[in-house]
Amino acid sequence: MGRTAAILTARLIFAGVFAMAATFKFAGMANTAAYIAAAGFPVPLLLAWLAAIFEVALVLAFLSGAFFSEAALLAAAYVIFLALSFHGPSHWQANQAEFGFFVDHFTFFAGLLYAAVHGPGERLTLRQGTLWKGSEASTN
């Protein structure tokens, strides 16, 4: 019971973080685009929309368990990209808090990698991912 509760709590946390990020993007798409442009990326409004949609897809995967391991791996890559692009070493001299944001992304990255390897758990999970085999695979 404790294992199931821990896994479901982790899934809710992952979903919650990406849901908040998507909500902030949808609520202030122009601000998000400006932030992306300030980092030097082209077509910032398109990238802002793609990021928000991607985050919604991650939320759905974490909540449902469908394609969970794949979503966790993609989320891990996304989180490292964000850390390097928006909180990397070039930002530290101007604002030392950026180093803390940078390091925080790596702890989230580690959790996502762990989740990708161990799968969505036994409860409240759609069995549609290709990486995670679950207990059914070990009994067949």
Rank of each mutant, 00 (worst) to 15 (best):
N95R: 09
L8T: 00
T32H: 05
A75G: 07
L63T: 01
A61N: 06
G121N: 00
A137N: 07
L47A: 11
W49A: 11
W49G: 11
A19Q: 11
T32D: 05
D104P: 06
I53P: 07
Y35M: 14
T107G: 12
I13Y: 08
G65A: 09
A22I: 12
A115H: 00
I36T: 04
G16D: 15
V117Q: 08
L113Q: 01
R127N: 13
L73D: 01
L50S: 10
G16R: 15
A33Q: 03
L45F: 05
K25S: 10
H118F: 14
F24R: 13
A115G: 03
S85P: 00
G100F: 13
A6L: 08
L50K: 08
M1Y: 09
L60P: 03
P44R: 09
S85Y: 02
V117W: 10
A39L: 13
E70P: 03
V59H: 05
A94H: 03
A37P: 05
A110M: 12
L126T: 11
V59R: 01
L84Q: 11
S138P: 08
F108C: 07
V79C: 10
L46K: 04
A75H: 04
A71C: 07
T125K: 03
L45V: 06
I80G: 01
L60I: 15
I13K: 01
H87V: 03
F41Y: 15
L113V: 04
T139K: 14
V103L: 11
A94W: 08
V17Q: 05
W92T: 00
F41P: 07
A71V: 03
T139W: 11
G119M: 06
A77F: 13
A10D: 08
G129Q: 04
G88F: 09
T139L: 13
E70C: 05
